[in-house]
């Protein structure tokens, strides 16, 4: 899971637009990862003990720990933090692969994108580093009699796939309806759950964000009277030329 600025954060840049300004930013679990975690916990509960544990793993510096603790409070059994700044998707995927390759996880859930840099990359890269299959754009994930079935969204439709374990499930809308939130008891228990800090492995990054810019300001909205809808259609036709 990745930790990202709360979705309503006002985005500002520091150092002449070379870095994201983190002053005052509230950090949250990336929304897709919250859904993935929710589905993982449901699957564990449905599995009658067949699924032993749900682990969350995050690549990030110490500041991310409160957000990782939140995942434990929601119900994850343990957490791993790889102690390094996430340089780019390739670097992050290599860190995760390096850490979990020998741990025998059957399903690795990832979100389809992180709402900070919108890479949509880590899941597919991770599968490739681990040498296991991936299915992307998953909107449902079910296990019945040990068989895993997933729904994948495609342009204009849906597919149902069967998958061999282990695999990487890249999650989007639909796998769980509402993300779980931590209960009081969950928050208490989270304090005692293991949060293991691991050293990073040797890895390169292949990309770098060198600068940022705000979107250009939008021109003011042209208002049309409610009883003059024809004028709107005229504007869309002759001024904006979109109809």
């Amino acid at each position: 899971m990745s930790t990202v600025p709360d979705t309503t954060t006002k985005i500002r840049f520091a150092g002449d637009g070379t870095a994201f300004d983190v002053t005052g930013v509230q950090w949250i679990i990336n929304p897709w990862d919250e859904l993935s975690l929710t589905r993982a916990l449901q699957l564990k509960e449905e599995s009658n003990g067949a699924i032993e544990k749900v682990t969350v793993i995050s690549v990030g510096l110490k500041e991310t720990e409160p957000v990782i603790r939140k995942a434990l409070a929601i119900g994850a059994d343990e957490a791993i933090r790889i102690d390094t700044a996430p340089l780019d998707a390739y670097f992050v995927a290599k860190q995760i692969a390096g850490s979990i390759k020998d741990d025998g996880f059957d399903i690795v859930l990832c979100g389809i994108d992180s709402s900070d840099y919108n890479g949509s990359l880590v899941g597919g890269m991770l599968a490739e580093f681990l040498g296991i299959p991936s299915v992307s754009s998953i909107s449902a994930l079910n296990i019945e009699n040990g068989e895993v079935s997933v729904n994948r969204e495609i342009d204009g439709g849906k597919e149902v796939l069967s998958v061999e374990l282990p695999f990487v499930a890249i999650i989007q809308k639909g796998v769980a309806l509402e993300p779980r939130i931590p209960s009081m008891r969950g928050i208490m228990m989270a304090r005692k759950k293991p949060l293991n800090v691991k050293a990073p492995v040797e890895a390169d990054s292949l990309t770098e964000m060198i600068s940022f810019e705000q979107l250009p300001a939008k021109a003011a909205c042209k208002m049309v009277e409610e009883d003059n809808v024809k004028e709107l259609v005229d504007l869309l036709h002759s001024e904006a030329k979109v109809i």
Binding site: D88, A89, Y90, A93, I112, D113, N118, G119, S120, L121, V122, G123, G124, M125, A127, E128, F129, S134, S136, S137, R152, E153, I154, D155, I170, L206, T207
Partner: peptide, 24 residues
């Protein structure tokens, strides 16, 4: 394309070829 199939395939090709990705 940065659509569902592009998002699925670009990261895998990236690892196979050690190629950095500019996505979206």
């Amino acid at each position: 394309a940065n659509n569902f199939s592009g998002k699925a395939l670009a990261p895998m090709v990236s690892v196979k070829l050690n190629a950095g990705v500019g996505s979206g």
